[in-house]
Design a protein around this nucleic acid. Structure first.
Lengths: 339, 339
DNA sequence: GTGAAAGCGCTAACAA
DNA sequence: TTGTTAGCGCTTTCAC
């Protein structure tokens, strides 16, 4: 174990400036009850000594500040790294430091991170949750740590949130496919205990109902929000006696997996299967068939979340907020229409 | 500002278990001088109370900061998110917490993050540096904070490092192309002040020399390690009076950009242009032409770096280490051979 | 407006 | 093997 970095404490500064530690502290914290003369003396001493206050001591004394915990469900998913970049950019120009945790879609790991953050007494938490259907978050909610849920929500966790309007995005995508003449539209989505999965499925169903297309359970597959999940789901759909002619996929990684299966079976897009997928990605243009997608504003999602959290920390009693961002349908080749 | 989070302190646990705080502390820190009976009692009390130690207090007391700063040059690049995931997984089972900074390939932002980490007195730093050719890091090196350079090195920063054997990887890739009969092999690489760019260029040139193929400066383009950089570089190569028949691209994002330009000019891969690129990526299989790549073990890179840093923290006087990991050439369609 | 002093929760001597 | 206790560096009453 390393020893302390610096022996310049508030005491040293106080001695140098010929004042008490209390006065130095008042200067540091910006308390306005210090006379200009002493303030000047203290400032000089701080500069000369290159003093910077010990964060641990400060935190211990006042309770936690200056740390924001960010727990994401998959830090290798471009969707979340986009969010992360947005969060980071906001925090960068704040006094807060970003503590990162990766839950890998595992509620147990998530719980661990959360506990660690809580016991650290972080100033706030931004969470993309992995589990939404049980009471995992009830005691978390009881801790009074400011928190923002990002992308996903849980009814057991009533906190500020920044999300995509998934129902409408999914509705729009399904409608697009239907308007191109498709009646057998399949759907591949994520685990149903995650709110985004529920909402996207809902949007899909609503669009179908709205257009008098019967909902067929066979055409709906929910799997893991992973590449493997997408591949497996696609195989299932492909094994159907009557295959879908169009498909909506609710996640970028699943899309990659589905594409894997599609190419393996030598199915032509969009001729044999029209496709709309969630998430625009940098690699889209280089794909065999460029994908029609619902682009989600991930970076802004992160920015909003960080700003919202900072707001909430400053003003704990403000009413709960839910910010909803719209996805954007971008037409490319895979849906079979340039519109 | 919030007040303190939890009132479950070591004292409460001690009372509950009927022991002293010292004994509880011993159990927590894994000191082995506690009798099994008491240890069991303490463990139970901890569990029942849901106690977890206050990090600030601990840090203050032991005079070390249980935080690792990780500053990456682009947290939206899959290469670095792969590393990040590896780092996170190691840190997760340590006492350390991960503080993330994103320099966006900007030395000024990097500097800012580094300064902030230093003044926080973090326990250690993992850095993918953005600038390698000036003395940016000289005073950083003087701070005695343990540090590991990841992926990229600088002669101004003599610290432990974990890197890919870029020269040999690049050599291998170039050789592969040459063995397929190509003599006009182009090269697209990153900024030359970054060590990986230098090394990859070196490997390329060495392979050429080794095979008696003349090096033509026209065929070598160095740009930004970004999608735009790859696209611009490709355009440049395409404007040559005599185009290359094969190409090595030294970065995944640049590859995407190059592909963009290639498709725009309707150039067939591998017929009109054989391609080998750095980095294997999840989307590779779904590309128009699956890419022959040098796969880099990003996750392991991160794991090694984190472990190395933890080692160094425990044992500051151990000799400097440089861990070099090998890339792996994976043959797919884009080089024009299944071998 | 200022200083003295009491801890924040924890660990590590030192005693027992 | 265990408990007692003195701080780590800081902020914040409370007197003055």
């Amino acid at each position: 174990m390393r020893k302390k970095k610096s022996n310049i404490t508030i005491k040293v500064v106080a001695d140098r400036a010929g004042v008490s530690t209390a006065t130095v502290s008042r200067v540091i914290t910006g308390s306005d009850v210090v006379s200009p003369r002493r303030r000047k003396r203290v400032d000089r001493a701080i500069k000369e000594l290159g003093y910077s206050p010990n964060r641990a001591a400060r935190e211990l004394r006042i309770g936690a500040v200056l740390k924001i915990g960010v727990v994401l469900s998959d830090i290798q998913n471009p969707f979340f790294t986009g969010c992360l970049a947005g969060i980071e950019s906001v925090l960068q120009s704040s006094d807060y430091v970003l503590i990162l945790g990766n839950s890998k879609e595992d509620p147990r790991i998530e719980k661990m991170h959360l506990n660690s953050l809580i016991s650290d007494g972080v100033g706030g938490i931004i969470l993309a949750l992995t589990s939404g259907y049980d009471d995992c978050y009830q005691d978390l909610a009881k801790s009074d740590i400011p928190m923002v849920a990002i992308d996903r929500e849980s009814k057991y966790l009533l906190v500020d949130s920044v999300v995509i309007d998934n129902v409408s995005a999914s509705f729009q995508a399904t409608e697009c496919l239907a308007k191109l003449g498709h009646r057998r539209i399949g759907y591949i989505g994520g685990p149903l205990h995650i709110s985004t999965s529920q909402e996207r499925l809902k949007g899909y169903k609503e669009a179908l109902t709205n257009l008098d297309i019967p909902i067929e359970d066979d055409l709906i597959v929910n799997g893991q929000y992973r590449q493997g999940g997408g591949c497996a789901a696609m195989e299932e759909l492909l094994n159907l006696p009557e295959r879908p002619t169009a498909l909506l996929i609710a996640n970028n990684l699943m899309t990659l997996g589905a594409l894997e299966a599609i190419y393996q079976h030598d199915i032509q897009i969009p001729e044999a299967l029209a496709l709309v997928a969630f998430d625009d990605t940098p690699w889209n243009i280089a794909l065999k068939t460029p994908l029609t997608v619902i682009a989600q504003p991930t970076y802004q999602l992160g920015e909003f979340a960080a700003k919202l959290l900072l707001d909430r920390i400053k003003n704990p009693d403000q009413p709960l907020q839910k910010i909803m961002l719209k996805g954007e349908l971008i037409i490319r080749d895979s849906c079979g229409s340039k519109i």
